[in-house]
Amino acid sequence: MHTVTLIKGDGIGPSIMDEAVKVMDAAGAPIHWQEAYAGLAAVERFGTPLPEQTLAAIDQTKLAFKGPLTTSIGGKGFRSINVVLRQTYELYANVRPAKSWAGVNSRYADVDLVIVRENTEGLYAGLEHYLTPKKDIAESLAVVTRAGSERIIEYAFQYAREHQRRKVTVCHKANILKYTQGLFLDVAREIAPRYPEIQVEEKIIDATCMHLVMHPQQFDVIVCTNMFGDILSDLTAGLVGGLGLMPGANIGKEAALFEAVHGSAPDLAGKNLANPTAVIMAGVMLLRHLGEIEAAQRIQSAVEKVVREGKQVTPDLNPDSTAGTVEMGNAIVAAMA
């Protein structure tokens, strides 16, 4: 039996997480769920967006399954809980697969790539401040270390080898940012020869974006620094049908966190309209991480079947559907029977 910290999140989080838990339980996954709170739900209950009780739970389980959290935009409000969790538990590898879905109306039918994003450094390190008392000049520092670059690039090549991927694209901006991006690229050039069976290419971030839109089939595994990975993850989601279909994993040496990568969509909360696919597929990634391969495959096959048939899916996948979040979850459970 695996014990996993369950954080349902804000907005649509509780509704989609309930469906994910229902599906995972129905698949026979041996998981004991230990519920904890973060974000606005935690503020309402504990007066803080990240209570000590939640950190204590993750300290114990080393595994978290999380719904979307609401984070304020701009200089007011609390800092991103996602960033804090990633840095607290050294969840240095953010993994986001983007694969085309049968039954989903998207621009491409044959995309199958993975973004491996450095998750703790770069411009998201949180080192920013105002330079003047008037707060009219702000500065953010991008931190790239050799150690951080080595572990994420090594992870990307290991991932490619273990999943029989053919190529790793090192995405960078070393032509302009000579030191930070230059260091990242230098480390990639040192590590790549250890994986002679894997093709390696170097590509500047802006060219990567253009080529992803024009011909995404040329990519397999893309590894990059934090902010570039954040942007590319959403771009690749757009290639396969949107964030409602995109799962995410945050992997460290001692802990891991799995989540839907979309927002909390408070305008949809309580309306039984939110698509649970992304977080259910994050649950599949969690099960694979735990070695529960059979349960993971049962769920994945059932989700693919329901999405392909397009009948019991949420309206974002089929505007003519009258099914909602709960009905889609029920259909996935039925497809496993």
Rank of each mutant, 00 (worst) to 15 (best):
residue 217 Q to G: 04
residue 211 H to N: 07
residue 185 L to Q: 10
residue 267 D to P: 03
residue 178 K to M: 05
residue 215 H to T: 11
residue 178 K to Q: 10
residue 201 E to Y: 07
residue 266 P to A: 13
residue 271 K to V: 07
residue 211 H to G: 00
residue 203 K to W: 06
residue 253 K to D: 15
residue 168 V to H: 09
residue 194 R to E: 11
residue 230 D to C: 09
residue 213 V to E: 05
residue 222 I to V: 05
residue 184 F to I: 10
residue 205 I to K: 04
residue 195 Y to G: 13
residue 246 M to G: 10
residue 241 G to Q: 02
residue 223 V to F: 03
residue 176 I to M: 11
residue 203 K to C: 04
residue 243 L to E: 03
residue 185 L to A: 11
residue 205 I to G: 00
residue 169 T to R: 06
residue 241 G to H: 00
residue 272 N to V: 08
residue 242 G to D: 07
residue 241 G to M: 00
residue 193 P to M: 09
residue 212 L to P: 00
residue 256 A to M: 13
residue 171 C to V: 15
residue 169 T to M: 06
residue 255 A to L: 05
residue 254 E to Q: 13
residue 226 N to F: 04
residue 230 D to P: 01
residue 263 G to I: 06
residue 258 F to S: 06
residue 242 G to M: 14
residue 178 K to A: 15
residue 172 H to T: 08
residue 182 G to I: 02
residue 207 A to P: 00
residue 228 F to S: 01
residue 240 V to M: 08
residue 205 I to P: 00
residue 199 Q to S: 14
residue 243 L to M: 06
residue 209 C to V: 13
residue 193 P to H: 12
residue 262 H to D: 07
residue 180 T to Q: 07
residue 205 I to L: 10
residue 220 D to N: 04
residue 240 V to I: 15
residue 275 N to V: 03
residue 191 I to M: 07
residue 276 P to L: 03
residue 186 D to Q: 15
residue 238 G to W: 11
residue 228 F to T: 09
residue 192 A to E: 11
residue 261 V to L: 09
residue 173 K to A: 02
residue 199 Q to N: 08
residue 268 L to D: 08
residue 236 T to L: 11
residue 202 E to I: 03
residue 196 P to E: 13
residue 169 T to K: 05
residue 253 K to Q: 14
residue 258 F to R: 10
residue 210 M to E: 04
residue 240 V to A: 04
residue 184 F to A: 02
residue 249 A to K: 08
residue 227 M to Y: 00
residue 268 L to H: 11
residue 249 A to E: 13
residue 213 V to Y: 09
residue 217 Q to C: 03
residue 256 A to I: 12
residue 194 R to N: 13
residue 250 N to W: 12
residue 229 G to A: 04
residue 185 L to M: 12
residue 205 I to T: 10
